[in-house]
Nucleic acid binder design. Structure first.
Lengths: 124, 124
DNA sequence: ACAATATACATCGTAGTCTTAGGTATATCA
DNA sequence: TGATATACCTAAGACTACGATGTATATTGT
């Protein structure tokens, strides 16, 4: 029922999960639990992808197929499913970065911020 | 079912509707239809709030109550419901701007963009 | 030995949000 | 008369996230 009065950190993050996952994987293969921790770390704890969003998203990404996975038994500790970006995944990440820049610039424009999101050329 | 392969302009915009509406209304009272057009205009057609999202959002904002409305009969054309920001709406907008900056900076950080969202001081 | 914590996977129910499509009505223009 | 623009509103369906729960392994503390 919308809940405007809530902390909108949670509202705003909707739809960002796939691009965050793909971006972490662009640094190299990883597994679900580590991906979630890396997103938290890189964002200085500002973003947190819960497991109820993470694992479904990974399965959809694998069906796309933007990532591939292998099940790896560890010598110590629970087994892991290691995800690797496919070529399509790399392409999708590049496109999603552009979408994000367009989107954030557009929101900044409506909010009255003329600096325009992610500047590629620094003004004098 | 998630649909990662889709145009993610649509995925990313989720959750941003209330802040966009509040921001437009901070320039002065307006009505639903005009608010939607203004969001499109300010974003250079990058953002479009459909009526099926707009009117429910306005009703929730009014229930908060972050906006107030009056029904105004026009001398020509259909009547309009004019929305005005309340004091709570102004405060909420300020808080939402800060949330948006934190969120966009965090996403940029995960995406490997070190410029950090909305710079307030331009580098030399 | 037992409990607590951390790692690591996965699924379900619930709730919230958007899109698409439809409906009502007024006014202008061809 | 019909098309277009304005202006409101709602409903059905799809999508996404959150919180809780469950399984299992290994380490650490008491």
């Amino acid at each position: 029922m919308y809940i405007v009065g809530m902390n909108d950190d949670q509202e705003l993050k909707k739809g960002s999960t796939p691009i965050l996952i793909l971006s972490v994987l662009s640094s190299g293969p990883s597994h679900g639990y580590a991906i979630a921790r890396e997103i938290q770390r890189l964002s200085a704890e500002a973003l947190k992808v819960g497991e109820g969003a993470l694992y479904p998203a990974l399965r959809i990404l694998e069906g796309a197929p933007l990532v591939e996975s292998t099940w790896e038994i560890q010598p110590s500790g629970p087994s892991r499913r290691i995800y690797t970006l496919t070529e399509a995944g790399h392409a999708k990440l590049a496109a999603s970065r552009r979408s994000w820049q367009r989107f954030s610039s557009a929101v900044n424009a409506v909010l009255g911020d003329t600096s325009g999101g992610t500047p590629h050329v620094q003004p004098a």
